[in-house]
């Protein structure tokens, strides 16, 4: 590869010069949550394999999940999963050719954060009141 030459013309601006906006943050969050879920899938697989391995390994897995760090990771995983799902639903709206005007874009970004947070709390609330 040739060495990088200093261009005399104006270059396209880089990411860091833009003012943060909801839509930009949510777009980045969609990719970041996707990567986080990629890692989380390993934990899901380990948990299922532990369950299939017998009571001993499963009790160990449950003890790790029940520790304060485990609870934090599990709650975080459920939120990230629902956040990514809401981001995906937003993409479906755009795939249908709708929701491109500034106000709708902004609302979609805001509501998907609120909805994913609310849904996470709802699922955990149901899980703990139903038992």
């Amino acid at each position: 590869m040739a060495e990088v030459k200093q261009a005399a013309r104006p270059l396209s601006p880089h990411l860091q010069i833009y003012r943060w906006s909801w839509t930009m943050a949510m777009s980045i969050a969609h990719r970041v949550t996707g990567v986080a879920l990629y890692g989380g899938s390993l934990l899901v697989a380990m948990w299922l394999v532990a369950a299939a391995s017998g009571p001993g390994p499963f009790e160990t897995a449950q003890a790790i999940a029940g520790s304060w760090l485990g609870r934090l990771v599990l709650f975080g995983y459920s939120f990230v999963l629902l956040h990514h799902m809401m981001g995906g639903l937003r993409h479906f709206v755009w795939d249908l050719g709708k929701g491109y005007d500034p106000q709708t874009r902004m609302n979609l970004a805001r509501y998907s954060v609120v909805a994913s947070g609310g849904l996470t709390l709802l699922i955990w609330l149901i899980a703990f009141t139903a038992r």
Binding site: W47, A51, E59, Q62, L82
Partner: peptide
């Protein structure tokens, strides 16, 4: 994903059985 999360969350703290 709703069914999946429901299963995972409801099994939190449960025994192997």
């Amino acid at each position: 994903v709703i069914a999946f999360l429901g299963v995972v969350v409801s099994l939190f703290g449960r025994s192997h059985l």
